[in-house]
Design a protein around this nucleic acid. Structure first.
Lengths: 244, 244
DNA sequence: AAAATACGTAACAAAAATGAAACAAAAATA
DNA sequence: TATTTTTGTTTCATTTTTGTTACGTATTTT
């Protein structure tokens, strides 16, 4: 009784996405995203066995997205699909954690074959490691992100200190913080931040964001504040600065 | 201290073989074969971590060679290098067990990147299988998983305490719990949980899941609850935490 | 320097998420 | 078919999260 494997397709071009869906849905359960943002949502809410993604997305750099996904999903096969001709950029994809690169235009059968090859590998891995299925623990240790003494645990949607105490962030506070982490060192407008955390039935106003950030600050810096990690950029928005 | 990884190059064209050697020997220990026959010899006498092979060999059909190698070397990455333009034949390669296909002419950097990607995967595999190999022997009898004083018996679809008393979980409650066990330490969204236990004619709503979890909790923690093993991650879903 | 603006903060109110119990429906079993 | 078990639904209580408002302070503008 084999369950159908699921493939997340991240592609902004509607035509190509359609093509991919039609081709792949015969063999896999398809999850679709047209933006990086949507792909994060899906990845936190669903299980995916593999990812096929375009490199050029409207809202986020493809390379960064790969890095980011790899941080939270150590083993998931990531297959990049792109019209990119430049070999150096292809190499970059592999360096940030991609497993394969398929140039557009592509042969659908070949893509399926490649996906299957990667899935086969993953199955071998999982077969060996039923117990080890929580692959996050051992491998995370090399990649865990630090933030002012806190350890970021995306799998648990939470920040922990060295003693394992939680920072008690709400899930949305944590999402917002993740967005800061992904855009570290860059000033982000309120507007963009609102977009970033927006969901169905949840659209915060810029002012509401101020409060949200104040709450995050209080939780991760202590009541005295100390050196603010999330800096205020007057007239613009906020910025996360790790190095200092 | 990382040992240099070894790559077996199977290629009859002397020029290309030379090129491959020059490129790859900076990163890997290179083994060379110009015929299928020679490649068998090498594989029986040496250890190789990956294979880069031409599809057109003088003495043997490339596809058959792949099949053959795969029979004896289940996990070794096989990267086919060929001038073949026909997509159907490429697909064939994957079907007989190849892991990758690179068309000639090729970018050497990209080839290196691809080899590395596959090697990385294999290392993950080996890392895990070592652990597995170690504790499978001594703890064979303790293969059973423990959960807050309960012993998980997947064959009986049930939890038992030390005295052998059943926790009286229904089969679906048990399935859900198993999914938690497989994803221990990670927050799982309601959506994903619903999909995980879903069957034909059985698609629980997220809300129904809350009730199901409440029932599991009551059965395995006692009416007082005690420290919840299945934690609630507000705004996300639930998470099983064994260590604490 | 006064006014306007931007932001921090606290307190309160509104909304949302979840737990619990009771009941109803469905499924399994005798 | 009758009975038991399992599952889903509804309702209500509780907790948590979030937004709003009001006010204070700092910064910029005039």
């Amino acid at each position: 009784m084999e369950a159908l494997e699921s493939v997340l397709v991240i592609e902004d071009d509607k035509m190509i996405r359609e093509l991919l869906r039609l081709t792949l849905e015969k063999k896999f359960l398809i999850l679709e995203a047209s933006t990086a943002r949507r792909s994060w949502e899906i990845l936190t809410q669903h299980h995916a066995d593999a990812i096929v993604m375009d490199l050029n997305l409207p809202d986020f750099c493809g390379l960064k997205l790969i890095k980011n996904i790899r941080k939270n999903h150590t083993h998931i096969p990531i297959i990049v699909l792109s019209g990119e001709k430049d070999d150096a950029r292809k190499v970059q994809c592999f360096n940030v954690g991609a497993d394969d690169f398929v140039e557009k235009p592509f042969c659908t059968d070949l893509l399926v074959a490649r996906i299957n090859a990667h899935l086969k590998r993953c199955k071998e891995l999982n077969g060996l490691s039923n117990i080890e299925a929580n692959d996050s623990l051992p491998s995370d240790s090399e990649q865990q992100m630090e933030l002012n003494g806190w350890v970021v645990d995306p799998l648990k949607f939470q920040l922990f200190d060295k003693q394992g105490h939680s920072a008690d962030l709400s899930s949305r506070e944590f999402c917002l913080l993740q967005y800061f982490l992904m855009n570290e060192g860059r000033a982000i407008s309120r507007q963009e931040l609102c977009e970033a955390v927006r969901e169905k039935n949840y659209v915060p106003t810029p002012r509401a964001l101020d409060v949200k950030i104040a709450r995050i600050r209080k939780k991760i810096c202590g009541p005295k504040g100390g050196a603010q990690i999330i800096k205020t950029i007057r007239g613009v928005g906020y910025m996360l600065n790790l190095e200092n």
